[in-house]
């Protein structure tokens, strides 16, 4: 006689759901695909350069993290000795924050004018502004460089940040958002005696807090990660950002000297960390901002 109670199918609650297991397996493989390259970078920041050159990444955590960190932050590799990690980090921060702030302030102002005012040339201004969404900076990079040169903006923070702001992504986003704000709010405010400036400061800006935060995160990451424009517009090493500095790092690894993997990988890590931290900590805002921007 068979013992029925041993039948694994007798209690469905305990049955292993193979579909679920497969789901998790795929997700774990996917997560590893995303994560392993970062772990490789992380591992090589803990060992000496000689160790890395000989053996490459290994499954051990070395003791050189502090040493590599000091080298990355305070040692320069260029001719002028100005492109230390510290100076590049500061420049990246200025680019990221300046870009995000500029984009949001200018975008909100323009969107407010377009949505809340009766303007004779509103349609014309709208098209003038939104045509900029069509052409990315990359396709007009050379003439942009020439103009920055003419205005003697090379190697300045203004030259680094302002030309990047010349597209209407934030304006478009805020315009969409303002249009979704109920009409009656501005009407109630007008009856309550609020003029255009007061309405903007007292009501619209506080109301847009979440949207501003989401925009700020997206724009900060976007600005921080800029590469092509900083590469062209900054030639002085003291103006380099971390991402701009990557180019020099790769060329250093090719050089005749002993490649400084510890320092280079540490700098790559520092270039990754702030935007990644922002995206992870403010995940829900970030996702909301990103996915709503296309509506």
């Amino acid at each position: 006689m068979t013992d029925i109670s041993q039948d694994p199918h007798a209690t469905p609650a305990r049955r292993i759901k193979w579909g679920r297991v497969l789901d998790h397996a795929i997700l774990i493989v996917g997560s590893l695909f995303m994560l392993i390259p970062l772990l490789v970078v992380l591992q090589t920041t803990t060992t000496t350069d000689i160790e890395t050159i000989k053996n490459g990444p290994e499954l051990l955590i070395g003791t050189q993290f502090d040493d590599n960190f000091m080298k990355a932050m305070f040692k320069a590799s260029g001719f002028s000795g100005e492109n230390t990690g510290t100076s590049m980090l500061i420049n990246s921060m200025i680019l990221g924050l300046g870009f995000a702030l500029g984009k949001i302030v200018i975008g909100m102002m323009a969107a407010y004018a377009l949505v809340y005012f009766r303007l004779r040339f509103a349609t014309f201004a709208f098209w003038l502004i939104f045509t900029t969404l069509l052409l990315p900076l990359e396709v007009r990079i050379l003439p942009s460089y020439e103009i920055a040169q003419k205005l003697s903006l090379l190697n300045t923070y203004t030259g680094l940040i302002v030309p990047l702001i010349a597209s209407a992504t934030a304006t478009f986003f805020f315009r969409q958002y303002f249009r979704s704000v109920p009409e009656e709010l501005v009407e109630a405010a007008r009856i309550d005696g609020a003029g255009p400036v007061k309405f903007f400061i007292d009501i619209l800006v506080p109301l847009s807090q979440t949207m501003i935060a989401a925009m700020f995160i997206i724009m900060f990451v976007f600005g921080w990660n800029q590469y092509l424009w900083p590469t062209m517009v900054t030639t002085e090493e003291g103006m380099y950002t971390l991402v701009r500095g990557i180019k020099q790092l790769t060329q250093d690894l090719e050089g005749t000297n002993i490649p400084e993997y510890g320092r280079a990988n540490m700098l790559a890590l520092i270039a990754i960390l702030p935007p990644v931290a922002v995206v992870i900590f403010f995940q829900s805002w970030f996702v909301k901002g990103l996915t709503e921007s296309d509506k």
């Binding site: 997700l27 990451v221 990660n225 590469y227 990557i246 935007p275 990644v276 996702v287």
Partner: peptide
């Protein structure tokens, strides 16, 4: 999973290329 699968969004393309050089 969501966090693990989305963080790379914030990595700059040249840094991704640099990591590619290592890999």
């Amino acid at each position: 999973y969501r966090t693990l699968l989305m963080w790379v969004y914030a990595v700059a393309p040249p840094v991704a290329g640099f990591i590619g050089l290592l890999m």
